[in-house]
Design a binder for these strands. Structure first.
Lengths: 242, 242
DNA sequence: CGTAAGGTTGATAGGATTCAATGTACGTGG
DNA sequence: CCACGTACATTGAATCCTATCAACCTTACG
């Protein structure tokens, strides 16, 4: 459908190794070294489905460029996004045989695809690689737990602040910097467990308080005061906003 | 404090291998075979702290008997339980060097303790073990994601129903069977992201609808209609309860 | 039997959703 | 190039759900 092959010329060892620098955690160079040889690069247009719940899971992926979200759809139509995948992240090997999540691109994305067997090969290979993958899974688990705490115990304003804070930190954005976020309000809301309207209201609240600026042009936020953003995220009431 | 050593006589290979049967997923016999030789059994009284946030993480654990909860405490005092550990489950190796969670026993619990180095040894050993641990982590990740969906997108009644349903399934309880749950309402609430009062109200709602019976004796629930419990969990409104 | 800890129930308030209307950017075709 | 339509965002008003506060009840236990 939207899927197309990328000329492998565009994305190769060079591009990858430069990407490796600005990645938060998961990617040990050791994994990449192995993966570089085995992957196929795929390109996806905006809002394309990379895989879906119930699909057979024969591959896992590494995001090379763009943004991808992993979500779950409930029978009554409600959706929860459980993870935001940023460049350099691995994704798509959380399932057994069948996918339990849906992966969609938020913008134009390039994704490296690997057969799941590679994971087993990693195990057979050096224990270093083994430890790297385990570490990645543990970090993944930890951040999902943090997400759960947010969904269970934070107010709407705290969630929005926490989300912006998280991304600003991960992308290493300082005060005055611009946070590019290709998500629509719908995705925003589904990640935070809120309605679009509430997200909108909380964003204007943060804007009015001078902590962020929202660009007319969708998907751009200016981080004005990241420390206050953190204060709000920890306890909106104590900060004086609610 | 509450912690005391258990005479290893009480809990040995026999007890373990019989436990292995009724466990959902994590425990491949292969892991256990290795672990049996390396662990130390510890006993904990009710509501004892096994480890705490910020503690140094030198060990991981397998629950032999009892129930353990893993939680996170926010600065404003709000708590979210992120996982309920049942007999046979591994826990306590999600952290790097410092604990990111607090582990507490809910009832009298026996826990096998292993040095974290064992994990690395597993990697050096057979790839079978390696795959088993990875599988465990992936399943863990999956169930945390499910938990996140619940916290983000389900109503109070749906959460309570889902929780009872989950445990009934895991402990293989049929209609008429008794679900033993040593949790207090406070823990119940903190797992579901609700207040104690709301949990209480939802339980009476389920009781009035005839789906469960709540024993006077704390911590005992009779599952009356597990299928309806599932219906409520999926969509309380559609089922006619709200 | 009396006290303490935990659970239930009621009344009220508050926060988030829902429904509805308006606003704004963007792309298409006249 | 402007008009118009579509998609998405914002704002307002009303409703609903859950939390909070408070009282009362139950169970466990000395």
């Amino acid at each position: 459908m939207f899927q197309y092959r990328v000329l492998s010329a565009g994305v190769t060892a060079d591009t990858l190794s430069c990407k490796v620098q600005d990645i938060s955690a998961p990617n040990e160079a050791t994994i990449l070294a192995l993966l570089d040889r085995l992957g196929i690069d795929l390109g996806f247009a905006r809002h394309a489905v990379i895989f879906q719940e119930k699909d057979q899971a024969a591959h896992f992926y590494r995001l090379v460029k763009g943004t991808v979200q992993l979500s779950k759809l409930r029978i009554n139509g409600r959706r929860q996004i459980v993870r935001l995948v940023l460049p350099g992240d691995l994704f798509g090997f959380e399932a057994d045989e069948l996918r339990r999540l849906t992966a969609e691109s938020l913008d134009e994305a390039v994704v490296a695809q690997y057969p799941t067997e590679v994971l087993d090969q990693i195990g057979n290979g050096s224990p270093q690689l083994h430890r790297a993958v385990m570490r990645f899974l543990r970090l993944q688990l930890f951040s999902t737990q943090e997400h759960a705490v947010m969904l269970g115990r934070q107010t709407a304003l705290e969630r929005v602040a926490a989300f912006l804070h998280l991304l600003a930190k991960r992308k290493n954005i300082k005060n005055g910097g611009v946070l590019m976020l290709p998500m629509r309000r719908r995705d925003f809301a589904d990640y935070l467990g809120l309605s679009v309207e509430t997200v909108s209201r909380m964003l204007t609240k943060l804007k009015d308080a001078g902590l962020i600026a929202v660009s007319k042009n969708h998907g751009k936020f200016v981080i004005r005061d990241i420390d206050s953003l953190e204060d709000v995220m920890l306890d909106a009431k104590a900060y004086g906003l609610s």
